[in-house]
Amino acid sequence: MRRDFLKLMLGGASLLAIASCSTTDPKFKSYSGPPVTRIDVFKSSRVMTFYSGSTPIRSINFGLGYAPVGNKEYEGDGKTPEGLYYIDRRNPNSRYHLSVGISYPNDADRARAMMQGVQVGSDIFIHGQGPEGRAATKRDWTVGCIAVTDAEIEDIYAMVPDGTPIMIYP
């Protein structure tokens, strides 16, 4: 009987420990759909499409940098980069609710900036609204990032693993 009581107590303690590790923060969603294997971003139409293999699984509209036309050339130009990058980091404590990092600058971006004698810039993300986005009066308000709603970045944060290729088209 004592052994049964010990088993019951240990089992209950284990369940309590597991429950205490779970989060009630709604911004950390889980995703059980098909794996996201690539993202295509079309700046001109403001549509970002997520693919599993060759099958599109979701499309989202977004905002860009305050100077949305053209490729990012230097820090502070307000443009979003164009080309092939990768999701390379995430920030659960972002000022913009949540964010996933884009691997800008790549070697070509650094070389171009060096040739022009300018700072290449960094910290390009897909992110939520944050205080600036909620106060923005225009769709394109970031300094070069891709902005979505807070609900959409919660989904993206859950869906997209680090290492996912992201192709940004003009």
Results as ranks from 00 to 15, higher is better:
Asp4Ile: 14
Leu6Glu: 15
Lys7Ile: 15
Leu8Phe: 13
Leu8Met: 13
Leu8Gln: 12
Gly11Gln: 04
Gly12Leu: 14
Gly12Pro: 03
Ala13Ile: 15
Ser14Gly: 15
Ser14Cys: 15
Leu15Arg: 06
Leu15Glu: 03
Leu16Ile: 12
Leu16Asn: 02
Leu16Glu: 00
Ala17His: 09
Ile18His: 06
Ile18Val: 15
Ser20Pro: 01
Cys21Lys: 10
Ser22Asp: 05
Ser22Gln: 12
Thr23Leu: 10
Thr24Val: 10
Thr24Tyr: 09
Asp25Thr: 10
Asp25Tyr: 07
Lys27Asp: 06
Lys27Arg: 15
Phe28Cys: 10
Lys29Phe: 04
Ser30Gln: 14
Ser30His: 12
Tyr31Trp: 13
Pro34Cys: 09
Pro34Phe: 11
Pro34Ala: 15
Thr37Glu: 03
Ile39Cys: 05
Ile39Val: 12
Val41Tyr: 01
Phe42Asp: 14
Phe42Asn: 15
Lys43Arg: 09
Lys43Pro: 07
Val47Cys: 05
Met48Ile: 04
Thr49Ser: 01
Phe50Leu: 15
Ser52Met: 04
Thr55Asn: 10
Pro56Phe: 04
Pro56His: 06
Ile57Trp: 08
Ile57Gln: 04
Arg58His: 11
Arg58Cys: 05
Ile60Pro: 03
Ile60Ser: 06
Gly63Lys: 00
Gly63Pro: 00
Leu64Gln: 05
Gly65Glu: 03
Ala67Thr: 14
Gly70Glu: 01
Gly70His: 02
Gly70Leu: 03
Glu75Pro: 03
Asp77Thr: 06
Asp77His: 06
Lys79Phe: 02
Thr80Val: 05
Gly83Ile: 04
Leu84Asp: 13
Tyr85Gln: 01
Tyr86Ser: 04
Tyr86Trp: 08
Arg89Ala: 14
Arg89Lys: 12
Pro92Glu: 12
Asn93Glu: 13
Asn93Arg: 14
Asn93Gln: 14
His97Tyr: 15
Tyr104Thr: 02
Tyr104Leu: 06
Pro105Met: 02
Asn106Gln: 10
Asp109Glu: 08
Ala111Ile: 11
Ala111Gln: 14
Ala111Asn: 11
Ala111His: 10
Arg112Gln: 13
Arg112Gly: 04
Ala113Asp: 10
Met114Val: 11
Met114Gly: 12
Met114Trp: 11
Met114Ile: 09
Met114Pro: 00
Met115Asp: 14
Gln116Tyr: 10
Gly117Pro: 02
Gly117Tyr: 07
Gln119Phe: 11
Ser122Val: 07
Asp123His: 05
Ile124Pro: 07
Ile124Gly: 09
Gly128Phe: 01
Gly128Met: 06
Gly128Pro: 06
Gly128Thr: 06
Gln129Ser: 14
Pro131Gln: 11
Gly133Arg: 02
Ala135Thr: 05
Ala136Pro: 09
Ala136Glu: 07
Ala136His: 07
Ala136Lys: 06
Thr137Asn: 10
Lys138Ile: 12
Thr142Pro: 05
Thr142Ala: 08
Gly144Phe: 01
Ile146Ala: 00
Val148His: 01
Val148Gly: 00
Ala151Thr: 12
Glu152Tyr: 02
Glu154Thr: 13
Tyr157Glu: 07
Ala158Val: 09
Ala158Ser: 11
Met159Glu: 07
Val160Leu: 04
Pro161Val: 04
Asp162Cys: 08
Gly163Leu: 04
Gly163Asn: 03
Thr164Met: 04
Thr164Cys: 07
Pro165Glu: 05
Ile166Gly: 00
Ile168His: 01
Ile168Lys: 00
Ile168Glu: 04
Pro170Ile: 00
Pro170Gly: 11
